[in-house]
Design a protein around this nucleic acid. Structure first.
Lengths: 352, 352
DNA sequence: GTCCACCATACAAACGATTGTAGACGCCGA
DNA sequence: TCGGCGTCTACAATCGTTTGTATGGTGGAC
């Protein structure tokens, strides 16, 4: 009363000058109560249309917007989705993986479309489930999206037992508890190997470390196909972090250049590096060595020759993740989605 | 007392069963007041060390963590930094730009390191300054980082007049009000053009639309160098969105194949596409046509031949942005940073 | 003319934490 | 034994909204 009421006293500094920070401030200016202002700004029909517009105009004029923290606290709905990237194996990995970044971009687009904000968290698992519960248990988000499962399958499984609005990208195992959207990596790996074998490869190599569950399945698929066809398979555990990748691949390709004629790379990025190294060693692609990638990032079309790869439907997957999360936030329990991979034949393998 | 103390009474359902969601719940269990629990969990020295540890153990046991919304509301400090990507020109652009995504990754790393969470927002400017003020005015974040300025220089300038903790990536103009960290694009463009001219190019082309201020400056730099040397310069406004880029570049390179012998691409991604198209047209690089990119993304090393490009120090820039933002949050007013570009000579230009 | 219904607004109680301050308790010296 | 002092804890106000309910006023029907 005493301090605030500058309305009538000094007409000078009345209007746009005094900073209006709270609903109460605006209410005083409009001559109504805070509750009414709240409803007016929310566009509720309980307030008179004329009053509503007057208040909205006033708010616009003063550049006022309600404090989100207070709003979220009261309404117990944050309008925020947490997106966490578990950096499990590979402690030193930055968020620089091209696939994850691409997926993140699509998720951001989908979430924005649905009116959600996105809280990004780079999590480095430390043995406990803390890295995940920090997000789920904080009351800061309505739901959580996991970009990849890394080697944290068990933790995710455990947390999801009590925290329902959680959807992960990655492998969808039989009987698993949590909701996952991903590509059938086993089928993808098999598909890649079978393609190479069909087009004449006899000594295969799989490039990529299998600490993460997704990559491990790709490798299993490749191994299964190789075993069935009776061809050799070499596993070279290339790091997924792009910083180390280059040197490791260089070493690997030089060392094994004598006997490998078909390479399955765990990702397109590895494949690009392989292409580069093979080219330096003047191996002809696909004549001397065939190469096949995984992901089908936009870049795959731009290599020379263009990269044959196993396509993951990132955009579709991102949309599915967001849709399923929204359903879970609403209390439903949609099942996971295992998308079939697709072979995109380009120039680094011989046509069958 | 009556309800909570299951320790001795019924050892069965005593502990982890009853859900403890609030400080008050935990306080009841511990037989202390909520205030004490709050201080204990915050590690304050005002509570007895023994009590503190007992409470912390209890919290751990029940998987309790304080509601962040309430905490942030009361303490008026969110521990969150907003990162917004303005999609000004190019309404249909997804967050898929490789450079922005890379910068985002580094920002995420730096912010995590500093204990901040990251709130990502894809903003589509609509003529007003609403897209930015939605973030700055909401009380949701302690500060805002802008990934690129797009064509929104004026809006940013205006908002930053009253909202101090704001740092943008991008061009650092003379006399501008807001704090920006970025590469000297003018110098970069000039550097690229001078390099091409020095190595024999006489008919230059700049590929990339100049709606965004950064690209526009690169173009100006190229134009200045071209004018000084008296060589022709063609400007072909390629879209920055990767979806449309391919076709546009294909059309452009086919049309102009007769007279361009030096290409400055507005980004590495454009350069990669150019390489691809030129290769299809069986032009020899760098003998028939020289190409130079901008950014020096990790991919630039993997093209064939490896891409000559103007390097932007993304990691260093990200760190600078976060440092300056932290200083601004603390009330200081650090100046912007204009980093010198660096020419990385690889295989798509002739050595001088 | 009275009463009912109804619309618009005011009031006040949450939401769940943080934090200044007052008070309880134990310990010490006199 | 008592006062003073230093530690620790309880109490209560506060952050800024949202939302259920009470209340005031207006119009129409009988």
């Amino acid at each position: 009363m005493g301090s605030g009421g500058g309305d009538g006293d000094v007409p000078d500094n009345s209007g746009a000058d005094t900073k209006v920070r709270t609903l109460a401030d605006l209410a005083r200016l409009a001559g109504v109560s805070a509750g009414t202002v709240s409803r007016a700004l929310a566009g509720k029909s309980l307030v008179n249309a004329k009053t509503r517009e007057r208040i909205q105009a006033l708010a616009r004029e003063h550049g006022f917007r309600p404090n989100q923290m207070a709003s979220k606290l009261r309404s117990r709905r944050t309008g925020v989705v947490g997106v966490v990237i578990p950096l499990g194996h590979e402690k030193r990995q930055q968020i620089s993986d091209a696939f994850f970044l691409t997926l993140l971009g699509h998720l951001a687009d989908e979430l924005t479309e649905s009116g959600y904000d996105l809280m990004l968290s780079r999590a480095i698992p430390d043995g406990s489930s803390d890295w995940l519960e920090r997000m789920t248990g904080s009351g800061m988000v309505d739901g959580v999206l996991l970009i990849g499962q890394s080697d944290q399958f068990d933790v995710i499984e455990q947390v999801s037992a009590s925290y329902r609005p959680l959807v992960a990208w990655g492998t969808c195992r039989e009987g698993q508890h949590h909701c996952a959207v991903g590509t059938d990596n086993l089928a993808g790996g098999r598909m890649a190997a079978e393609h190479l074998i069909a087009s004449g490869a006899r000594r295969l190599a799989f490039l990529g470390e299998t600490l993460g569950i997704e990559i491990e399945e790709r490798h299993r698929g490749v191994a299964a196909a190789a075993a069935e066809a009776g061809v050799d398979l070499l596993h070279i555990p290339i790091s997924l972090a792009s910083a180390e990748m280059g040197a490791q691949i260089k070493a690997a390709t030089e060392e094994n250049e004598h006997d490998v004629d078909g390479i399955v790379a765990a990702s397109d990025l590895i494949a690009m590096n392989v292409l580069h190294c093979l080219h330096e060693q003047e191996r002809r692609i696909p004549d001397d060595t065939q190469v096949i990638g995984f992901d089908d990032l936009p870049l795959a079309q731009l290599t020379m020759p263009p990269l044959t790869t196993i396509r993951q439907e990132i955009a579709i997957g991102a949309k599915a993740m967001v849709d399923k999360l929204k359903a879970r936030i609403a209390g439903e329990e949609p099942a996971g989605l295992k998308m079939p991979p697709r072979l995109v034949q380009r120039g680094t393998t011989r046509p069958v």
